[in-house]
Amino acid sequence: MNYAGMNAGSLTFTASLVVVALGGPSVLDTFQVLQLSAYSSLALGVVGLAFVWGILGILSLGHAAFFGIGAYAYAILSIAQGESTFAVAAAILAPSVLAVCLGYFLFYGRVGDVYLSVITLCVSLILFSFMNSTADVSYTLLSVPLGGFNGISAVPPLNWPGFVGDFLTPEATFSLCFLLLAAVYLALQFLRGTRLGRIMASVRENERRCELLGYDPRWLKLVGFVISAAIAGLAGALFTANTGYVGPTVFDLGQSSQFILWAIAGGMGTLSGAIIASFMLQFLASFIGTSQLFNTSLVFGTVIIFFVYALPNGIVPSLQGLLRKLSRLARRQRRRPEVIGDSIKSTP
């Protein structure tokens, strides 16, 4: 296992994200640019979950709560102000504040793992239920109607900071989304290798031992939880900026379970895996959705069963294992003549 955090693999992965960010717009058509921008913002959401789950061992089943609050915060503020800079900041801040409050009670109250998952899930479902019942025109925030199950539409895209009305082109948004994804990935990967990150991993491995060594696991978990919530909030803001719409479904079970599915498929403990899996499965979802052959939920149910049974380590760790096996095989092939000689000699 590599503890360096920043290794050749993670730097290569970051570099490829940057290449996509800068080179993508010149080879892709506008539809693909828009589609991939939306995909990348969901990928950003899952990388935060992969961090808090894979490194700290906290299964936040309701990660959509933070994503959704970020999405709504962006929608409301960008409409109210006509400017997106403060809206993005608020989309990061609001879920972080919720994560601090929620995390304080969960971790300092020593709520067990399973209950923690259930509570986070309930929080997102409560928000879903609440947002669904705000259809009446009297429900407004900063004079922006919340819209109930219809959601908020015509949300303005991102604009250059400080320049009202000077919107980013879809291509610029695409580049920004991928660069942010690369930056967050790299920052989290860097964090893993630091002293703090390594101690966080020890919380996942054995919380009691970590505590008996003199570290406070409650604090470490809270920090990680808030980091992942902030990332999810940013992801929500970018998603809404890309699609121009936010509705209560950002809080629903489907959204939360999608994040979980991507993190599992990508491989627990890897951040790049979650990103790769999220893109693959989003393409799959959109393919199934457009071809209308199967029910998407049915296919995803099958996919999750497949991963749990056939590739329990997830895509990236399984590929790494395969590569290691192949290179060992290649080395053995080079030495084969001697090996055969030995085995003949040793046969009685």
């Binding site: 296992m1 390594r198 020890s202 491995e205 054995n206 031992r209 060594l213």
Partner: peptide, 19 residues
Amino acid sequence: PSVFNGLSVHENVWLAAAR
């Protein structure tokens, strides 16, 4: 024995000394 099972021997002792 209460050690960090999924971590290397070095990492185990490193975590103890790092405080």
